[in-house]
Amino acid sequence: MSENILDINDLRTSFFVEGNEIKAVDGVTFQVPKGKTLGIVGESGSGKSISALSILQLIDDPGKIVGGSIRFKDEELTTAKGSRMRNIRGNEISMIFQEPMTSLNPVYTIGQQLREAYKIHQGLGKREGTKRAIEMLELVGIPSPEKRVDQYPYELSGGMRQRVMIAMALACKPELLIADEPTTALDVTIQAQILELIKNLQEEIGMSVVMITHDLGVVAETCDYVAVMYCGKVVEFADIETLFENPRHPYTVGLLNSLPRHDIDQDELVPIKGSVPAPDEMPSGCRFAPRCPHASDICRELPELETQEDGNDVRCWIYTEQWDGEKGVKVYDNETTS
């Protein structure tokens, strides 16, 4: 692995509601190598978005980062001052939100909102800011940007707005872009365009990307590494090829099994049984054990995230010495016969 731009170690973010602690992110560890794309995959409520917001220290009351470290270019962010964080946000680390419809302020024109970033971080005035804004809009592929800068968000379609969001996020050429489900709200054709755009811009500016998604197709297309999250924990961290060819964690296998495939004949998809446990009835051992087809007694204890021979990490007893059952996890095509 090359040098890491972002190194997250044992990050814990909790929400304190009516005296209860809800561990949304519970000991997350992952790295983002410089210039690469890391995908974070998981079901709703697995803590993907909260991890992303934690990086930018944007967790609101009643949430709080309770432990762990976030190192960005060897700088600790969990203890960084407010003014330093504001300087990092939008300038060195940017974020794209998942809902383009509501991510732009309806009372300002596109140009006014794009100028904001330049004004905050580079102190640019109106004329210079507008010039840059038009350049940015052009870069993200918005036709006739001179006209668009003076329009209000409601005059733009969803795909256009997402492009504007990307333009805003990239305005100051950040080194790290966090994209929180950037394509979830868009239709497939626009989705492909947006992903392509992010990829091209990444090459152009040389930034690293954290792509948060629940769409494995998006992951396959864009990412270099993948962290699979389940219930606030990373259960598998692997490079993209290993993840799709040789998935280790039963949860990853379950996710892949529930996707339709083109290369084999199948009548039915195999879903993962059950649903994500509620935060207050979280199993004490392996979080996935109640839904895991391989679970045995040992799974009542929590396995560690352990590095395998090929350098990838997995959090499962199956890959440890203590496991006494059958080694390996059944992959989809071995299972289907029909």
Partner: peptide, 26 residues
């Protein structure tokens, strides 16, 4: 709670700016 407030915070805006330029007009 709307996302554009999150978005502008993620751009590094100060609280005063968010309150008077982004929340008040809305």
């Amino acid at each position: 709670k709307l996302e554009y407030v999150d978005a502008i915070r993620a751009l590094g805006a100060k609280n005063g700016k968010i309150i008077f330029q982004h929340i008040l007009p809305n």
